[in-house]
């Protein structure tokens, strides 16, 4: 007799506890950002400075540029960090879900080709050589196939994971088509794996964002890139003045304009980020924008919100 009633009561209590969770939603006093692992540190630095200056709370996730846009266009985030421009099909999903946004460039990155510091033969690669190495179906497996003057050392390749904006951008520039790449290389979302792999193997070649090279200059060396106008080393200056082409790339944040009204402090945070983009980029070891670029982005934001 009593056993059934007790059991039912307990189960009801369990269900009530679960059910209590259904009412809540994400708090609108917290600004949510997600996306590229390359841009993540920039936005994180911005959030940190913003909070130190008395601003509201910002969370930053790292789902990759593609993953970030997926959430952004589903309306789950306020800001999407991106190391490439939004793709048409992503923009279509945003439109479908009524997510309106403005694209703002916040910094520049120099995609850097790195070799081990023990590599004493390669200093500069041409775009053609990179293409020969990375194009789909490439059979290049030795440095002497890259250039006959290079020694007979096996070539080991490290690249970005296919979910990253870095991979999309690199393949677009080097192979002429986004996502087109040979597939027999060590692909990783974790750039530190590339750092480890390349630094430990004198025949290795890899690529990633400039900041990873800057942090690991003692074990790695960067190759100069010849995009047609001579060899140019990746650096803050060459990326900023546009001479490190075509591997210098813009880094973006996408701001959901419809969130500006709902999320407290979002507009202020974005304005703060763009205004201070130069300082933040330097702190977070990115290639900063010129003041003129910053002014242009700021204007773009004001126009979008007006």
């Amino acid at each position: 007799m009593g056993s059934r009633a007790h059991l039912a009561l307990l189960c009801a209590a369990c269900l009530a506890a679960i059910g209590a969770g259904c009412g809540g939603g994400t708090s609108s006093s917290v600004i949510t950002a997600d996306g590229s692992s390359t841009v993540g540190p920039f936005t994180t630095k911005a959030a940190e400075d913003w909070k130190a200056a008395g601003g509201s709370d910002v969370t930053v996730g790292i789902s990759g540029t593609g993953g970030g846009f997926e959430r952004f266009c589903a309306g789950e985030t306020d800001i999407s960090n991106a190391s490439r421009a939004i793709k048409d099909e992503e923009a279509a999903i945003c439109a479908e879900n009524g997510v309106e946004y403005v694209e703002l460039q916040v910094a520049t990155d120099a995609l850097t080709n790195v070799v081990s510091s023990e590599n004493d033969w390669a200093t500069c690669v041409t775009l053609e050589q990179l293409n020969a190495i990375w194009k789909p179906g490439s059979k290049v497996s030795n440095w002497n196939q890259v250039d006959p003057s290079y020694p007979d050392v096996p070539l080991k390749l490290y690249g970005a994971g296919t979910d990253s904006g870095t991979f999309d951008y690199f393949t677009d520039v080097v192979n002429g088509e986004e996502g087109a790449s040979r597939s027999d290389f060590s692909a990783t979302e974790d750039d530190n794996v590339t750092v480890q792999g390349v630094s430990g193997d004198r025949g290795a070649l890899g690529y990633f964002g400039f900041s990873y090279f800057e942090e690991n200059q003692d074990t790695l060396q960067a190759l100069e890139v010849d995009g047609g106008g001579g060899c140019v080393p990746p650096s803050v200056e060459t990326a900023q003045d546009g001479s490190y082409t075509p591997l210098a790339r813009p880094l973006f944040i996408y701001v959901k304009t419809s969130s500006l009204a709902d999320t407290d402090g979002l507009a202020d945070f974005v304005r703060y980020t763009v205004e201070n983009a130069k300082v933040i980029a330097e702190e977070a070891r990115f290639v900063p924008l010129h003041q003129a670029q910053i002014d242009a982005q700021l204007q773009k934001f004001e126009d979008a919100t007006a």
Binding site: G24, G25, T26, V30, G40, E48, K51, V60, G61
Partner: peptide, 16 residues
């Protein structure tokens, strides 16, 4: 399910 990288405030039951 959304545990994220940078959260600079104490968590709450219905917060990130």
């Amino acid at each position: 399910v959304g545990a994220i990288t940078y959260v600079a405030f104490n968590p709450s039951l219905f917060g990130p």
